[in-house]
Design a protein around this nucleic acid. Structure first.
Lengths: 169, 169
DNA sequence: CTTTTGTTTGCTTGTGGCAAGCATCTGCCT
DNA sequence: AGGCAGATGCTTGCCACAAGCAAACAAAAG
């Protein structure tokens, strides 16, 4: 079911919007499988924790773009799985500081490397520079979309300081 | 919550994967709002019908990447709303050919133009050529991901033959 | 003491998947 | 040709589960 006309140079906004939607939809189609032992939201929380270190539940909710109650429950599940630890914030008895555990980090890396391997295989014909170029485009796209205020959500991409491949869900 | 390091030129696969994930997540964060009177899947079905003309339920399911039962139910809902029509396939009494109605087309265009306007506003600083370039990148990305077999899903981007802006949800 | 803030929990809604059921078509065997 | 078995297309019942809203609760702030 491929109906696009690649050579067509129509309205830029239109082509870009459509291309984005199709890419988004691809992710949706993939939801069931490949997100490891966690929920998509759970994996995202794991990611945020991996990148930012400790965070409060409300921060995780904001970062994942979900209701606080959802974040709270997800954290509970992750805690039961031993992937995160929750401790009362010493500075504020109301908040709980959530931190990723060693197991959580391992899980996170597992999800991560699985995704990287899949993408690497899918784009095996691409050159390194091409990937970097497209990545830059995507990053800029995301930045501008977020800054426009259309999306209330986070944008938490990062590569860890270490040389190992760690990113996220 | 922006933690990426834009200038960094790390592993191409890694940066690209992360950028893709963040963009995907943006869509997720947006789910609640802006998809008109339809379910996301419903809107997708409407889109597929708009592009391909009549289609069978199983085709819609495959195109949307959902279970046939889900597609069946969505079609029923769309039919109740008067957005599509269902008729028995003259060539095969088992299948039902689904077609978009005039009302459905109108609804579809409404969703579409809303999305286009939002993106246009968000990317108001982009030049036309930049948009086309990034769109081409996204299209290629999608194509290669789909062809790799990682995604069982559809990829239904198209612009209608008319000059009006019609694509889809 | 009242108000505000951070989190948890009960309830509801809705999408989606699996499996059973039903109708129709196809192919084989007599 | 007639007819039966299997395959195919769709529908529906049932269930799982994520997500949101609102109420409850705890702790801090004024």
């Amino acid at each position: 079911m491929q109906l696009s006309e690649p050579g067509r140079t129509g309205d830029g906004v239109e082509r870009l919007t459509l291309a984005m939607r199709d890419l988004w939809w691809l992710r949706r189609a993939r939801l069931r499988d490949a997100d490891g032992p966690c929920t998509l939201t759970g994996a995202r929380i794991l990611h945020i924790l991996h990148v930012t270190g400790a965070a409060r539940v409300s921060d995780l909710a904001a970062g994942a773009g979900v209701d606080i109650s959802v974040a709270s429950r997800q954290v509970s599940v992750l805690e039961d799985q031993g992937l995160v630890e929750k401790a009362t914030d010493p500075a504020d008895g109301r908040s709980h500081l959530v931190q990723i555990t060693a197991t959580g980090t391992t899980t996170h890396e597992g999800i991560q490397t699985g995704q990287l391997r899949a993408v690497a295989e899918a784009l095996s014909t691409w050159s390194h520079d091409e990937m970097l170029q497209v990545a830059a485009s995507l990053e800029r796209l995301r930045t501008d979309l977020v800054e426009s205020g259309l999306f209330h959500g986070s944008a938490t991409s990062a590569t860890s300081a270490t040389d190992t491949t760690k990113v996220t869900a």
